[in-house]
């Protein structure tokens, strides 16, 4: 490369940086900045009325999973915290799985319709996004509460003798999250199925595959990118869900989101809230890496 070429190449690099600088500045201030503040706060001591005291402390991090005995100061596992973590992960996994179970046939149905009805059906899928999440969750609350529509209907049918207690249980949170996040599963699945060449089904069927084998050996491996995208889009917001467990789970069936909020509110322990937030971020990132690695590595014989 001659000196002149090198100079123009360097000039191009510089103008590229210049052109992307507005986006970079926004990213630094809006994304990296707050994260950095969280990280710093998690190593400080809590103030008496909220906020933080500027002295280094690892107490917040220790108390994310451990608890110090008030009397003898010994450390033991913080059962309450772990329970909340476990409930969050469990509910998110179940939600992801069920949205897939319901979302896959739905997406398949839409993708195999005629062009015109397809657009209409996709439009219907997006309609829930038009209403505030809080209102939709309250609507679910109205349906499943003890004197709600569901119980009234089942009692009238004679299926049950006394109302089911659904509200303020993990099951209620699961119903709410499955309802709220279902479109996020259906849309990427639809995109993947829409690209799927239906003639491959005939080919597999011709080559002695049973219906189940056609699904497992041909359809699922090919639409896998859609399954991965949908699962990520459902799992991540589920893990950090705040409104749904708050309204449908009540005070007892907390998830990580509610627990973090509590530290910044009545708990008055900002460093713990910050530490929990960073921990949640790390868990999600780790889960994502492990999941996508496993999902993309797995061959057709897996």
């Amino acid at each position: 490369m001659s000196a002149g070429e090198e100079k123009t190449a360097r000039g191009e690099t510089r103008s590229m940086w210049l052109l992307s600088s507005p986006a970079l500045i926004i990213l630094i201030f809006a994304a990296a900045g707050p994260l950095l503040i969280m990280l710093v706060y998690s190593f400080l001591a809590p103030g008496k009325y909220g906020n933080v005291v500027w002295e280094f402390s690892t107490d917040a991090w220790v108390s994310t999973v451990l608890t110090r005995d008030i009397f003898d100061g010994t450390l033991s596992l913080a059962d309450a915290h772990l329970k909340i973590f476990w409930r969050s992960v469990k509910l998110s996994l179940i939600t992801t799985f069920f949205t897939f179970l319901v979302g896959f046939p739905t997406a398949w149905f839409i993708a195999t319709r005629q062009e015109r009805s397809r657009a209409a059906l996709l439009f219907l899928i997006t309609i829930p996004f038009w209403t505030n999440l809080l209102i939709r969750t309250f609507a679910i609350n109205q349906i499943i509460r003890t004197e709600g529509m569901l119980n009234t209907f089942l009692l009238w049918l004679g299926v049950i003798d006394e109302p089911l207690i659904l509200l303020y249980t993990d099951f209620a949170v699961f119903i709410g999250m499955t309802y709220v996040y279902l479109p996020l599963m259906v849309l990427p699945l639809f995109a993947a199925i829409d690209r799927f060449d239906m003639r491959l089904i005939e080919a597999a069927y011709d080559l002695y595959a049973s219906r189940w084998q056609v699904l497992r050996k041909v359809i699922l491996p090919i639409v896998k990118p859609g399954i991965i995208a949908g699962s990520i889009l459902v799992f991540i917001p589920s893990l950090g869900a705040y409104v749904t467990p708050r309204i449908l789970g009540g005070g007892r069936n907390m998830m990580i989101g509610n627990f973090i909020e509590m530290q910044f509110g009545p708990g008055r322990n900002w460093p713990l809230g910050a530490a929990l937030s960073v921990l949640l971020l790390v868990i999600v990132a780790a889960a994502l890496i492990v999941y996508t690695r496993a999902a993309t590595k797995e061959g057709p014989h897996g």
């Binding site: 060449d197 003639r199 491959l200 005939e202 080919a203 597999a204 069927y205 011709d206 080559l207 002695y208 595959a209 049973s210 050996k217 041909v218 491996p221 090919i222 057709p300």
Partner: peptide, 29 residues
């Protein structure tokens, strides 16, 4: 049904499985 008939088809569009190698495609049946 087609999967019970000892009859195989070469499709106009070929309909090869894009996620499988040539070897796996040929061995599918």
């Amino acid at each position: 049904p087609p999967n019970r008939r000892p009859v195989n088809t070469v499709f106009q569009s070929y309909a090869l499985f894009p996620h499988l190698t040539v070897r796996q495609n040929v061995g599918f049946g």
